[in-house]
C-alpha cells in the first residue's frame, strides 16, 4: 500500500468517525452524509463480492463449461424475484417452500440436540468434581461444585418463575421470587458486558483518531476536528436564525 493511500485512508477514516460522533452534539447534515455513505459502501462492497466471488465461480463458470447443475438452484433463486411481478408471483412459493423445507430439515434435529439437550448436559457437567473415582475436596473443585449448584438453582427457580400452570403460592412463590433475583442478576451482567463492549468500540475509534493526529498523517484529526467544530457552530447559528415553520 502506497504512503498516499495510507494518508488518504487516515483522512477518510478520521473524517467519517468525527462526522458520526457529531451526532452526540445534535443531528446535522454531516452525520447524515456519513450514515448514508456507510450504507452505500456496505451494499456496494457486498454486491461486488457476491457477483465476483460467489455468482462467478458458482454459477457463471460452471455454466460456461457446460455444467448445467447450477441451473436449478439459480432458477429457484430467481423465483424469489417473481414477487415483484404480481402475475407470476405464485412461482416464488416454490422457492420459499424449498428454503423452508431445507432449513427446517437441517435445523430441527440439530436444534434439539445442540441448543437443548447438550445445553442441559453443560448445565450440570460435572455436578460433583471427581478425581480418580473419588470426590475431589480441593479448593478449586469445591468452588466449581458450588458454582454448578448455583447454576442449577438458577435454572430451576427461573423455570418456576415462568411456570404459570400452578398458582404462585407457598414454596412455589418463594422459588419464583428467587428466580426473579437470578433474572435481575443476569440483566445486570448483560448490561455490564454491553457497557464493556461499547467502551471497546469507543476505544477503537479514539485510538485511531489519536494515531491520525500525528505529523505522518498531516495532522488529520486536529484539522478535521477544527473544521467540524466550525461547521457545527455555523450550522447551529443558522438553525437558530431560521424562522419557525408554521
Amino acid at each position: 500500500m502506497s504512503e498516499f493511500t495510507i494518508i488518504l485512508g487516515a483522512w477518510v477514516s478520521a473524517g467519517l468517525t468525527l462526522c458520526i460522533f457529531s451526532f452526540l452534539y445534535e443531528d446535522n447534515p454531516l452525520f447524515k452524509v456519513a450514515e448514508h455513505l456507510y450504507i452505500g459502501v456496505t451494499i456496494g462492497y457486498s454486491v461486488t463480492n457476491l457477483i465476483f466471488n460467489s455468482m462467478g465461480p458458482n454459477i457463471y463458470n460452471p455454466l460456461k463449461e457446460g455444467n448445467l447443475m447450477p441451473l436449478l438452484p439459480t432458477l429457484l433463486g430467481l423465483g424469489f424475484l417473481t414477487r415483484f411481478i404480481p402475475k407470476i408471483s405464485w412461482m416464488s412459493r416454490i422457492s420459499f417452500a424449498f428454503v423452508m423445507g431445507y432449513t427446517s430439515g437441517l435445523s430441527i434435529p440439530t436444534t434439539i440436540t445442540s441448543q437443548f439437550l447438550k445445553q442441559l448436559e453443560g448445565t450440570v457437567y460435572p455436578l460433583l468434581t471427581r478425581k480418580e473415582g473419588l470426590l475431589d475436596f480441593s479448593r478449586a473443585a469445591i468452588g466449581h461444585d458450588i458454582s454448578v449448584f448455583i447454576l442449577v438453582a438458577a435454572l430451576l427457580t427461573v423455570l418456576i418463575y415462568f411456570f404459570f400452570s400452578v398458582e404462585h403460592r407457598g414454596p412455589i412463590k418463594a422459588a419464583s421470587k428467587v428466580g426473579i433475583y437470578f433474572i435481575m442478576i443476569y440483566l445486570g451482567a448483560a448490561f455490564g458486558t454491553t457497557v464493556m463492549g461499547r467502551f471497546s468500540l469507543l476505544y477503537g475509534r479514539l485510538f485511531d483518531l489519536y494515531t491520525y493526529r500525528a505529523e505522518r498523517y498531516y495532522y488529520a484529526t486536529p484539522v478535521l476536528l477544527v473544521a467540524l467544530i466550525f461547521f457545527l457552530v455555523v450550522y447551529t447559528l443558522k438553525q437558530k436564525n431560521k424562522p419557525a415553520e408554521s
Binding site: 445442540s114 457437567y125 451482567a189 454491553t194 464493556m196 471497546s200
Partner: peptide, 25 residues
Amino acid sequence: CTAVSEPGYRPYYPVQITGLIPAMK
C-alpha cells in the same frame, strides 16, 4: 465473541466448545 454475546454463549462452554475468548478482555 463480543462482550454483548458473552452471557448468551457461556452455556456452550465447556461441553460444546473447549474455550471462549470474550471481547477485548
